[in-house]
């Protein structure tokens, strides 16, 4: 914690970066994102296992980008997000500086995307146990049971799009749900519209989701939509041996192919 504060202070004092995006403690005692712009502000920064939020979502926000060069205190999800966003040409090496802390408390400062790639390759990128279990459980259900499971959940969706705002990969200028030529996805929060919205969101994140869980955490209705994304994370890993956010320079799964991609259902 001290090492982070020290380094953040240096960076701000020397004007190397204009803002440090990190974790702090909010009024209600919960961990939240804070934006430190003055050296004295660094005392508010914390970093421990409660810092699960994926701060990389802020990197593409216009208000933040305008400030100037950024420093981000990145957990593994955020680091992966950075690599994925880099591969999608959304962020550039010179625009930001990443700090992180290893599980045994060592401060990491990444000099570039390559550096992050090397670190990420040694990190655990598996899905959290709880979600893995849940996916297995769902897969064991009958099709009808699964359908019922999702209908029960999706019937609560109010189309607030918090899941979209929270997701660092949902950076589109205009989301497909707002597309009206034709209006493919029902505007109102009807069950079918909610269902279609989640298919769209998941398809759009296939091969790009870094399993940070932000979408589900954001959902006011506690709908476990991250399971859908995690399911595709597994599909992509199993079929193509690719994990999103591990390489800043590769084509995404859905925009590339192998001529011998395996499947067993095409007649």
């Amino acid at each position: 914690m001290d090492s982070i504060r020290k380094r953040a202070r240096e960076l701000l004092e020397k004007n190397t970066v204009k803002v440090v995006i990190g974790y702090g403690v909010g009024s209600d005692n919960t961990v939240r994102a804070i934006f430190v712009r003055r050296p004295e502000g660094v005392e508010e920064l914390i970093f421990d296992e409660t810092c699960v939020q994926n701060l990389a979502v802020y990197l593409l926000k216009n208000e933040i980008k305008q400030i100037g060069k950024l420093c981000i205190i990145a957990n593994i999800s955020a680091l992966r997000t950075i690599l994925q966003l880099a591969s999608e040409h959304q962020i550039h090496e010179e625009e930001l500086l990443c700090l992180s802390v290893t599980p045994n408390g060592e401060l990491l400062e990444f000099t570039g995307f390559k550096d992050i790639e090397n670190y990420i390759s040694s990190c655990n990128r598996d899905l959290p146990d709880k979600e893995s279990e849940m996916i297995k459980k769902l897969e064991k259900m009958s099709v009808d049971e699964r359908w019922q499971f999702w209908m029960n959940h999706l019937s609560r969706c109010i189309k607030c799009y918090a899941c979209r705002s929270a997701c660092p990969m949902c950076y589109c200028t205009r989301c497909q749900v707002e597309y009206n030529q034709p209006q493919w996805i029902t505007v109102e929060a009807t069950l079918m519209g909610n269902f279609e919205w989640q298919i769209t969101r998941t398809m759009h994140l296939a091969g790009r989701c870094v399993n940070c869980g932000e979408c589900a955490r954001a959902c006011p209705e506690d709908i476990p939509i991250n399971l859908l994304n995690y399911k595709t994370v597994l599909t992509v890993k199993e079929k193509y041996n690719i994990s999103a956010g591990t390489n800043a320079n590769i084509d995404s799964v859905m925009s590339s192919f192998e001529s011998d991609d395996k499947e067993n259902f095409i007649r």
């Binding site: 999608e88 040409h89 200028t173 205009r174 859905m254």
Partner: peptide, 21 residues
């Protein structure tokens, strides 16, 4: 161009290199 977010995925899929950035 008001909607494109510059992800350049379309560039990767075009078999005729018809798309540029």
């Amino acid at each position: 161009i008001n909607i494109c977010c510059g992800c350049q995925m379309c560039i990767s899929v075009c078999p005729y290199s018809a798309i540029s950035f």
